[in-house]
Design a protein around this nucleic acid. Sequence first.
RNA 1: GCCCAUGUGGCGCAGGGGUAGCGCAUCCCCUUGGUAAGGGGAAGGUCACGAGUUCGAAUCUCGUCAUGGGCUCCA
Length: 660
Amino acid sequence: MTSIQVNLPDGSVRELPAGATAYDLAAAIGPGLAKSALASVVNGQTRDLLFPLQDGDTVRLLTKKDKESLDVLRHSSAHILAQAVQNLFPGTKVATGPNIENGFYYDFDIPNHKLSPEDFEKIEAEIKRICAQSQVFERQYIEQLDGVEARLKEFNEKGERYKAEILDKYKNDNPTIYVCKDAKSGETIWYDLCEGPHLPDTSWIKAIKLMSVSGAYWRGDDKNPMLQRVYATSFWDQKDVDAYIRQLEEAERRDHRKIGKEQHLFSIEEEVGSGLILWHPSLACLREELENYWRTEHRKRGYDIVYTPHIAKRDLWDCSGHTNFYMENMYTMEIDEQEYIVKPMNCPFHVLIFKSRIRSYRELPVRLSELGTVYRYEKSGTMHGLSRVRGFTQDDAHLFCRIDQITDEVLGVIKFVDDTLKLFNMEFEVELSTRPEKFIGDKAVWDKAEEALKIALEQYGLAYEVNEGDGAFYGPKIDFKLKDAIGRTWQCSTVQLDFNLPERFELKYTDSDGQAKQPIMIHRAIFGSLERFAGTLIEHYAGAFPTWLAPTQVIILPIADRHIDYCQQLEKQLREQLVRVKVDSSNEGIGKKIRDAQLAKIPYMLVIGDKEMEAGQVAVRSRSRGDLGAESFSAFSEQLLLEIKSHGTQEVTLPPVAVS
RNA sequence: GCCCAUGUGGCGCAGGGGUAGCGCAUCCCCUUGGUAAGGGGAAGGUCACGAGUUCGAAUCUCGUCAUGGGCUCCA
């Protein structure tokens, strides 16, 4: 272990132990360090391991292993990307270039050129050229230069309206720019308005990879002009880039749209329309299991199950308020000269069921649930496999309760969600969204309700994030989010309080004092939508579903044609036990049949030849554990049924294979 | 809806101004085999759709639709 030699701006040399922390360096250097001299602080030999980070007025020493240092690398990379694009496409105006989860992007306004992946090679070459120049990053305070006003004027004159807008926003925060200087002459080559921090110089940047281009609105507002966004990533080493690309490829292999095609799970046909799903037999099996689970659990947890129509007269949606704020998402039709609307939600129907008779406080909470298929018009560019569609089935429920029952009801839903997601071993994030600026209802009721949600979350012991002001105008909510193969999160379960519909539909119950009171309404879903949940399951299991969900649970493989009859007898016996079973009677060798079954991710294969027929046994192969040896058919089927019934927590086991 | 890219037999892909190939799958024949691809043959496409340029378009241009990656929006 060698020590770190630190050359200080005044020419003196300081030695620090190899394990020195960022704070040790800051202490060693002392407070008087000239900011412009930072790049020379650490000598060349240790720069692969460490670099000094100037962050505001503090100096810290980071190693490449520090998580934060990757952020610095990427942000510096973004500056180099911007410089490269401006070099190659003169007249380009730059907007912002923040870091994102696995990299960064930069937004550009490029006149007369539309970026496409064909430009990537050119841009990456320019980036390499810049990095090879070892341009020095230097932080400068605008106030100490020509002042904010002068700089604003300069931005405006150069047409850098985005930078001007940003500077104007931060003009009172002692804004800084980062200058890229020529290492030898000290001449300014390029600069960007930026808070920093940055690397000492561009030679630290070794592996930038441009990923994609897309449009993005300035400030994320679709009324603003659309800029060209370049997504990219940057690592310390090309090896890390390669590993990242491999990781993306793995995610692509798990993509539910790809597996959906391979395993014939579902399709979206042009003749039908985009965002409209055809569930093929295989995925229908999985859905059936989900629905069975759903029904059983709802009965156990005290829900009532209802069925409601797919369309309703416009009046109903006027009353619920949907025609006001949801009209552009709804499909309409005319019947008998009356306007009807295809339901985008199930709530109004459930409300009417609640309202259909006088309710006593004694029968609250009323829990109405339905697998309700709804249709919503989604903009054409937003559809995504099973995750974002135009027709989908919500596992919806509405709880009508007293205000003092909120915590218990929400607690029940949280438990339901947790139990369900645990069953699939799925991880999720929890977000609590509170009162927005525009809201309806009584502030005191909101406070009570938010408190009730918090108490429920804390009582259950779930970690959660609070999104202040992100609730719907009609009530606070808790969202549960699942991750897909590429790390995108999708909302599935949700618990949402509603002070609006009870008001609009004048819901009442008779309280113990004989007074009519308004119930609280809670919307909730466990799966969210069966489509999205099925898509998430496909990616979660990468198509290898646990036996209870697998479309085909057992495939019987005859060695030769003379075994087919016997196989079909076994098939019939299993089918009578409601096992999803098939016989592969194709004219292929056993090797091919096994290969096909493995690729189809079928949990169990039964190989049947002369030996098995004579002994009345089956040779069992598991897709994950390989050859399990021979067993009597009845013993196998008994264990299989046990595994299916236990929802996969108990796998078929057989005595160890005899070594011959 | 907006930006970029893509659209070739069921699926995965080549090709590319002179009316199309490969692999897998399908069907037939041979083979009847013991734990991840046995052999041979056949059938299958107006190259997404519409218009334009051209003697001639699957290929070039424009438009439409769909898909993919994003933005906005959302279960």
